[in-house]
């Protein structure tokens, strides 16, 4: 029983450290990538997994808090992609260009937007 407790606590520390590393890598990607869409990719993915992992670590360290931690994890998992989707769409509609390295851009999309207006 005591061994199980020790494993739980150290797994909690492990998830905390991994989570904070990903929370650091996401903004690093935002700083390094060349255009809005690539920055959005790095920002969304790394911060989502980092947040989930760190919160899960806190939940392991404090088993009494697990209910609210689960709510926070579900909330971040559902809302983070939605906000990145909204930013990407608004960036495309306000005609932010893709970076020079890009290989393909479906121009019919522009066409659809013109028809909609």
């Amino acid at each position: 029983m005591i061994i199980l407790n020790v494993i739980r606590v150290y797994a909690g520390y492990f998830f905390l450290i991994i989570g904070s590393l990903f929370l650091f890598l996401g903004p690093l990607g935002i700083l390094r990538f060349p255009d809005v869409y690539n920055r959005l990719q790095a920002g969304t993915k790394s911060t989502t997994l980092g947040a989930i992992s760190a919160l899960f670590g806190i939940g392991l360290l404090e088993p009494g808090w697990l209910g609210k931690i689960v709510i926070l994890i579900l909330f971040i998992l559902l809302t983070n992609p939605v906000s990145s989707h909204a930013i990407g769409r608004s960036a495309y509609r306000s005609k932010v260009p893709l970076c020079g390295k890009s290989v393909v851009d479906k121009c019919e999309e522009e066409h659809i937007y013109k028809e909609a207006k």
Binding site: I30, R39, G43, L72
Partner: peptide, 12 residues
């Protein structure tokens, strides 16, 4: 984009 990821990290 910067604000979005800043707020997620701040929540954690």
């Amino acid at each position: 984009v910067a604000i979005d990821s800043m707020t997620t990290v701040a929540t954690v």
